[in-house]
Write a protein that binds this DNA or RNA. Structure first.
Length: 260
DNA sequence: ATGGCTTGAGTGTCAAGA
């Protein structure tokens, strides 16, 4: 990926790659991103469809485990400097994979859900974000062009919540979680989606229950954060709701940014 | 009504997601 070249990068929580592979292949074909990261592959490498993706023109690198979590990068070109997990942070859960394309560092994260404010999982979530932030502070000194993409499991603002009153101080919306998101922005990252005019009530996740999608009862929790040199040349950032309308959809929609 | 679907694990019905 040379300088001054257009690059399309995207993120998608697929909620099981085995189930969603047909959707992913269709989406790659339709949008031709240079790089797509996936969360919740829910498989070890043995069950990962490397061959099918290669046949579709994509290199894949994976940090997976059985049943839960699992993240991957699918890239047009061969990725360099592949790294897995957060260095120095002991974590059994496979939630991070990073690659370098040209001079751009691409970090994919499946951030912890946290389950309930005050729970052990919530404490883990906050510790996890602190470790991620410390690592990215270092990483950004080495890579001025850095993008952090993934399922953040945080709705950063009331605009990102279908019912801010009902969700006030609840998991995904609590002040400490929003502070963790702000801590990432304080590194010099910016929310690509909010660089552009967007329609109101734009979300990236809708509950499977209660016809959440049809009633647009959603949250915007999947994000693309860009360092300044990338944000300066970002041309668009959209949530693609189309795959959420398919049979057996993921509960998340892909988010796509065009850079340069 | 702390449920409502969906997945993976694995045969009973959980845990976990968000």
């Amino acid at each position: 990926m040379g300088d001054n070249q257009r690059m399309k990068i995207a993120t998608w929580n697929v909620n099981s790659l085995k189930v969603r592979l047909p959707h992913v292949l269709d989406w790659l074909s339709a949008h031709q991103p240079d790089a797509l990261c996936l969360q919740e592959t829910k498989t070890e490498d043995a069950g990962f469809p490397f061959a099918e993706l290669l046949a579709a023109g994509y290199c894949a690198v994976h940090n997976g485990q059985k049943t839960y979590n699992g993240v991957a990068w699918l890239t047009r070109g061969e990725p360099a400097e592949v790294s897995r997990d957060i260095p120095g942070f002991a974590d059994e859960q496979k939630r991070v994979i990073a690659v370098t394309l040209g001079d751009t560092r691409l970090v994919c994260g499946y951030m912890p859900n946290g389950q309930a404010v005050g729970s052990d999982k919530y404490e883990y979530k906050l510790r996890w974000f602190a470790a991620l932030t410390d690592w990215l502070r270092e990483e950004m000194t080495r890579y001025p062009k850095l993008a952090l993409l993934g399922d953040f499991n945080i709705a950063p603002d009331d605009r990102d919540v279908h019912d801010p009153v009902a969700w006030k101080d609840q998991i995904l919306c609590s002040e400490a979680e929003r502070a963790a998101f702000s801590g990432l922005l304080a590194l010099g990252l910016s929310d690509a989606f909010r660089q552009f005019d967007q329609v109101e009530k734009s979300y990236s996740w809708w509950d499977y229950r209660e016809m959440g999608f049809r009633r647009n009862k959603g949250l915007r929790i999947d994000h693309i954060l860009l360092s300044a040199p990338l944000a300066d040349v970002c041309r668009a950032c959209v949530i693609d709701k189309a795959p959420r309308k398919l049979e057996r959809p993921s509960d998340h929609a892909p988010v796509l940014a065009e850079i340069q």
